[in-house]
Amino acid sequence: MTDPHEVTRFDEPWHAQVFALTVALSDAGRFTWPDWTRAFGATLARHGLSRDLNGGEDYYAAWLETLEGLLAGLNLAAPDQVAALRDAWEAAYLATPHGHPVRLAD
């Protein structure tokens, strides 16, 4: 039986993660959803000036950039702390043998 309802899935795990993180923060009252859509719309508009956005990878890149900016502006996640953790995760991946769970060094 064919499914008449084309179901869209997240293309990449991080698309799903950044989506869930944003919804969870909004649910927790860190920002309202209209605040989110305004900020996100502004990022999309800015990106769309230089090229046509395809709605796939560039859409989630804009999403992530918006969330980073919003959290920095709310003093919830300082860019230098985020950058340090990003590098720590990279180091952890590079140091973990293939097939083993990757964990951050404490």
């Binding site: 993660q17 993180l21 923060l25 919830l76 953790l85 991946y93 973990t96």
Partner: peptide, 22 residues
Amino acid sequence: HDAHSLLPSDSALRVKALETLL
């Protein structure tokens, strides 16, 4: 290439960083 775990994209690492911090 396969000695260590496959390195996620820069974006994926940034999401993990945000998630960890928050």
